[in-house]
């Protein structure tokens, strides 16, 4: 199944920050990493991702630099900044609350038996 746009918009920032906290990356690479880790459920479009990256850069949460890749092509790599890490920690706290609440109401459980009124 695919994740709808509104929902994606809600978590794209923390997820991008988390991905960049794992390792720096460029746009295409981030899209691939998310696709792989979600088993293909999350197909991000570049139309969504690049504006997000640029906005994050504008806010100083990530930084970008042009590097020459192994293929000899120049690529724009994004990396998380100190402020980005702080923001990620803050949003992680928020999401912990959100996830716990959702779970408390039976959303997010994967086992059949948890679905009860």
């Amino acid at each position: 199944m695919r994740i709808n746009r509104d929902l994606t918009a809600a978590f794209v920032t923390p997820l991008v920050l988390a991905l960049l906290a794992e390792a720096e990356g460029y746009g295409y690479d981030l899209i691939k990493r998310v696709r792989d880790s979600s088993d293909g459920a999350m197909q991000w479009s570049e139309g969504m991702l690049y504006p997000v990256l640029h906005r994050l850069e504008k806010r100083g949460l990530v930084s970008s630099s042009w590097k020459t890749a192994d293929s000899g092509r120049r690529r724009r790599y994004y990396a998380i900044t100190q402020r980005g890490r702080a923001e990620l920690a803050r949003q992680t706290e928020e999401w912990r609350v959100v996830l716990r609440t959702l779970e408390g109401h039976g959303i997010g459980h994967t086992r059949e038996g948890d679905h009860r009124e």
């Binding site: 746009g27 092509r73 724009r76």
Partner: peptide, 8 residues
């Protein structure tokens, strides 16, 4: 930005 899109 153009370069970035082209890379993509």
């Amino acid at each position: 930005n153009l370069q970035e899109l082209e890379d993509h």
